[in-house]
Design a binder for these strands. Structure first.
Length: 649
DNA sequence: GTTTCGGTTCTTTTT
DNA sequence: GAACCGAAAC
């Protein structure tokens, strides 16, 4: 093992935190102050102290962050130790639950519902109670309310009352729907994302022997991005670190941007209350950005009325450069041309395409720009709104694997059957009942019953699929997810895809990609469980092709969290776009969060920061709408930016 | 009673 | 693009 000169390789603030002894610790790390570095060195420090990596728990926001952290720590330590217990909250919760789910009356191979599954199920509930009407809240709203209740441990009725306030909504009907949804989920033996956390917490609370086992095991618990944890997650952390109490949490309350998902930056503020002996370390020395970018960031914090004691003032270490630019543009079209022009300008100055990013509040803000970049032959990658594993064709493949590995998976059965012509949800549900609420693909009788029950038009198509089901059991393909998918594609899906998708080619490419991905796993179960928790970012980061690696990145601000680029261009920094009107309408808290989002966006920049504010929005009905620059620009002191009105290019 | 298809409307942020 | 709704087609 390498010896590391911790004191020399870190600054004083970072060193103090990384080498601290035992007990609860809160690291308040402002943007670009080496937060990840500190965490990595902390891990390395613990390893150098002889702590067994098996006895550490490293919770991060994304799988990518966990991976990066472990890789960097390994490099530092000089041998591949790995931290076996590292990953997202959902990952860890899932891992614990898979072992003990029966204690909560779930099967150990419970199914994980993704967003799509949840939405379908919710729609069913509304239908079943005959509540569909224009007036009744949409299923996304219903899911949101349920999510808020779950994540903040609020009673359903209260959450409903909070959300609908004095609006004219039948709250009792809403309650009935949500209860039905919960019951159905239970019946399906399925957990959605929130359930995994809630149930893990429940498990630890109600089963002391399980809790003690993990609390004893995890001698050191480290949490990244603590400001984005919700109540459930914070409580999970408390229990898991409950025995040794060596809890090391890192976060920046001013970068809390997930309150709509129940995240509560007060977890940071209240940390000291929960752990009165907690030590607090502040990291304020910024290594990332030029002082002018930091001046803007500090001004944004200054305009916010954020609690004084948690305020961090970013101290610059880099030399003076020049101010961020505010570009006043005519409209979206003009903005797109301007961005292309700026990109070319920066490339002439020596920046590579991968040094640059375009950030925006919502995915659809980037549409015009995508066109312009394509027309101008500027290489670019988009961290798309649609995740790889949520796309229809990928889910179609996965549902076959689900049906094979779990006879009780009604949702997967439904999806698979609906691929057949003339079969819809209704038919699928009837067949499911007829089969006895389970479809055991290893049972030849069940298979032939299904085949014979199908209507004429669907039978010949299913005859192509049936042999694959048989082969799965006969040829013992339970490890060969890729082979199954390949056969399914050849025998059935290829024809289906040609008829259904205009972008047939790229979808087939995706499926090939999926086949490759499945080969990394030992079993289909493991693969499915893993895939359900992966995000597009995690999948994409691994599979970037060389030309994608050398491309401009387009991303939402949320997805850019934790990353940095020499050149950052923010588009649609106008009222009505950023801040998002929906958030601002809701409450003051909404505006505060949008401001934090703006801060996150700005602090991604190392050298160049360009803020674009078009003056006109072209609406889809052909009308035009005048927009003011974003309030987050207007509230800045004049000297912080250099403003320019751009004419036609 | 179901399914499918075509027209219409609206896009927040994610594990 | 995709989700929703209504009406035609099975």
């Amino acid at each position: 093992m390498k010896t590391i000169d911790f004191e020399n390789e870190l600054n004083a603030e970072q060193f103090a935190a990384a080498s601290a002894g035992e007990g609860p610790m809160l690291i308040l790390a402002a943007a670009g102050t080496g937060k990840t570095r500190t965490l990595v060195y902390r891990v390395a420090y613990l390893v150098s102290q002889g702590i067994d990596p098996e006895r550490m728990l490293l919770l991060t926001f994304t799988n990518r962050a966990a991976k990066e952290m472990v890789e960097r720590a390994n490099e530092l330590v000089g041998h591949p130790a790995g931290i076996p217990w590292s990953g997202t909250f959902h990952h860890i919760a899932n891992r614990i639950l898979r072992r003990h789910a029966t204690l909560l009356d779930y099967r150990n191979n419970y199914t994980i519902m993704d967003r799509d599954d949840s939405r379908k199920l919710m729609a069913n509930c509304v239908k079943e109670l005959k509540l569909q009407s224009k007036e009744f809240p949409k299923r996304d709203v219903l899911l949101h309310v349920l999510g808020m209740a779950t994540n903040s441990e609020q009673a359903l009725g209260d959450a409903i009352a909070d959300h609908f306030d004095d609006h004219d909504v039948d709250q009792r009907a809403v309650l009935a729907v949500l209860k039905l949804y919960i019951a159905k989920k239970r019946e399906l033996d399925a957990m959605d994302f929130d359930d995994m956390l809630v149930n893990c917490l429940k498990l630890l609370r109600e089963h002391p022997s399980v809790r003690d086992r993990y609390a004893m095991q995890f001698q050191y618990v480290l949490v990244d991005e603590y400001q984005d944890t919700n109540r459930i997650q914070a409580e999970l952390v408390n229990l898991l670190a409950g025995h040794h109490k060596n809890l090391f949490v890192v976060g920046d309350d001013f970068q809390s941007i997930y309150s709509w998902r129940g995240a509560d930056y007060r977890n940071i503020i209240d940390f000291k209350l929960r752990y009165p002996d907690a030590r607090i370390y502040k990291l304020e020395t910024n290594y990332r950005s030029v002082p002018e970018v930091l001046a803007l960031a500090n001004a944004t914090v200054g305009a916010s009325g954020h609690p004084e004691e948690f305020r961090k003032t970013l101290r610059a270490t880099r030399e003076a450069y020049h101010s961020p630019t505010v570009a006043r543009l005519r409209d979206g079209e003009h903005q797109a041309r301007f961005v292309v022009d700026r990109i070319q300008h920066f490339m002439r100055e020596g920046y590579r395409p991968s040094d640059m990013v375009v950030l925006y509040r919502a995915h659809f803000h980037a549409m015009e720009l995508q066109l312009a970049l394509t027309r101008g032959h500027v290489p670019h990658v988009i961290t798309s709104g649609m995740r790889f594993f949520e796309q229809a064709h990928i889910k179609d493949m996965l549902c076959l694997l689900r049906v094979l590995s779990c006879p009780e998976d009604a949702l997967a059965f439904d999806r698979l059957l609906c691929l057949l012509p003339g079969v819809g949800t209704m038919t699928a549900q009837k067949l499911w009942k007829k089969l006895g609420n389970r479809f055991d693909t290893s049972d030849p009788e069940a298979r032939s019953l299904l085949l014979n029950s199908l209507r004429k038009g669907a039978q010949p198509r299913w005859e192509k699929v049936d042999p694959i089901l048989a082969a799965y059991h006969d040829e013992e393909l339970s490890r060969e997810g890729g082979t199954i998918i390949q056969r399914f594609l050849d025998a059935f899906y290829d024809t289906y895809a040609v008829d259904s998708f205009e972008n047939y080619d790229s979808r087939i490419d995706d499926i090939r990609e999926l086949v490759l991905h499945t080969e990394k796993f030992d079993s289909i179960e493991q693969c499915l469980s893993d895939v359900a928790l992966l995000t597009n970012l995690d999948a994409e980061a691994e599979n970037l092709s060389p030309d994608q690696r050398n491309a401009i990145r387009l991303s939402t601000v949320h997805q850019a969290k934790g990353l940095e680029w020499p050149v950052v261009i923010i588009i649609w920094a106008t009222e009505g776009m950023f801040p998002s009107p929906r958030s601002v309408n809701e409450s003051d808290e909404g505006e505060a969060e949008e401001r934090r989002l703006f801060y996150v966006a700005a602090t991604r920049a190392k050298d160049e920061l360009v803020l674009c504010t078009p003056e006109v929005r072209r609406m889809r009905d052909g009308g035009i709408m005048y927009c003011q620059p974003s309030r987050f620009i207007e509230e800045l002191p004049v000297e912080v930016t250099s403003s320019r009105r751009i004419g036609f290019i």
